[in-house]
C-alpha cells in the first residue's frame, strides 16, 4: 500500500488514509499529520477528525473555490498533498502525553469486576493489577463526547459484553467490552462489563478543551481508594 491515499467523503470533506490496520505505526502517522494540520490551518478548513488509520478534513467548498473560481476538491487535495510532504519532513512527532486516570475499582463502582475475574480465571486483584499496569493509546475520540477508543488492553482481560445492556451507566465508569477497555464520559445506556469508576470529568463543555483525552494520548489507570475517589470527585467538580 502507498504511503497514503486520499478520497472524498462527499463534497465537503476529504479523508487521508495512512494504512489499513489498527496499529501504533499507522496511528503515529495519523497523529503527526493531525498535529501538523492543527498548527497550520488553511483558509476554508472547518475541522479535522483523526481516527484509527485516517484523518478526515472538513472544508468549505465555497471558500476553497474562492467564490466559484476554482474546483474546490482539486484545491483542497493539492493543499493537503503539499502539507503531507511538509508534515513528513518536519517529523515533529512530539512524544505522546501521558494522562493518569485514577480509578476506584471498588465493588459498587465495578459491579462486574467479579464476573470479569471469573470469566478470565483471575482474582479480582489480578484483574485490577493487569488493567492498571498497561499504557493505553487513545486511537480516537468518538461515539460520545470525550469517549476514548483505547488500544493496548491485555488479551487476558478480554470479556464479552453483557447480554442485556444496562439502562444507565454513570459518567466516569470504566468498562471492558471484548478486547477493548473504555471510559463512559457521560451517563448512557450500554452493555460493557463495569469494573471501576474515575472521579475525573472526561467531558466538560466549559473547559477550553472539553474532552480530557485527545487522540494520540497515552492513558495510565491508577487504582485509588473509595475515600480518595470522593475527595478527587469533589475537586474535579468544583465546590
Amino acid at each position: 500500500m502507498r504511503l497514503f491515499q486520499l478520497y472524498p467523503l462527499g463534497d465537503a470533506a476529504v479523508t487521508v488514509q495512512f494504512g489499513d490496520s489498527i496499529d501504533e505505526d499507522t496511528h503515529a502517522k495519523v497523529r503527526t499529520f493531525s498535529a501538523y494540520l492543527e498548527r497550520h490551518p488553511f483558509p476554508g478548513l472547518v475541522e479535522q477528525v483523526p481516527a484509527f488509520s485516517t484523518v478526515t478534513i472538513y472544508y468549505d467548498p465555497w471558500v476553497l473555490s474562492e467564490q466559484g473560481l476554482y474546483n474546490p476538491y482539486t484545491r483542497v487535495t493539492e493543499q493537503l498533498q503539499n502539507m503531507l510532504k511538509l508534515a513528513k519532513k518536519s517529523q515533529k512527532t512530539a512524544s505522546p502525553r501521558v494522562v493518569e486516570i485514577p480509578v476506584c475499582y471498588n465493588g459498587s463502582f465495578g459491579p462486574d469486576l467479579e464476573y470479569v475475574a471469573r470469566h478470565t480465571k483471575l482474582t479480582p486483584q489480578e484483574v485490577i493489577a493487569s488493567h492498571s499496569r498497561g499504557k493505553y493509546l487513545v486511537y480516537m475520540i468518538g461515539f460520545a463526547p470525550g469517549f476514548p477508543y483505547l488500544g493496548g488492553m491485555s488479551k487476558k482481560l478480554a470479556t464479552p459484553r453483557k447480554q442485556h445492556p444496562r439502562a444507565n451507566i454513570p459518567a466516569g465508569t470504566v468498562g471492558i467490552a471484548g478486547n477493548q477497555t473504555g471510559i463512559y464520559p457521560i451517563e448512557t445506556p450500554g452493555g460493557w462489563q463495569l469494573i471501576g469508576r474515575t472521579p475525573l470529568r472526561l467531558f466538560d463543555p466549559d473547559r477550553e478543551q472539553p474532552s480530557l483525552l485527545q487522540a494520540g494520548d497515552l492513558v495510565k489507570f491508577v487504582p485509588i481508594s473509595e475515600e480518595e475517589f470522593w475527595q478527587r470527585k469533589e475537586k474535579a467538580h468544583g465546590a
Binding site: E47, Q48, V49, P50, A144, P145, F147, P185, P210, Q214
Partner: peptide, 9 residues
C-alpha cells in the same frame, strides 16, 4: 458546532 468532532462532539 464545528471544530469539536475530534473530541466526539
Amino acid at each position: 458546532r464545528h471544530g469539536f468532532q475530534k473530541e466526539g462532539i
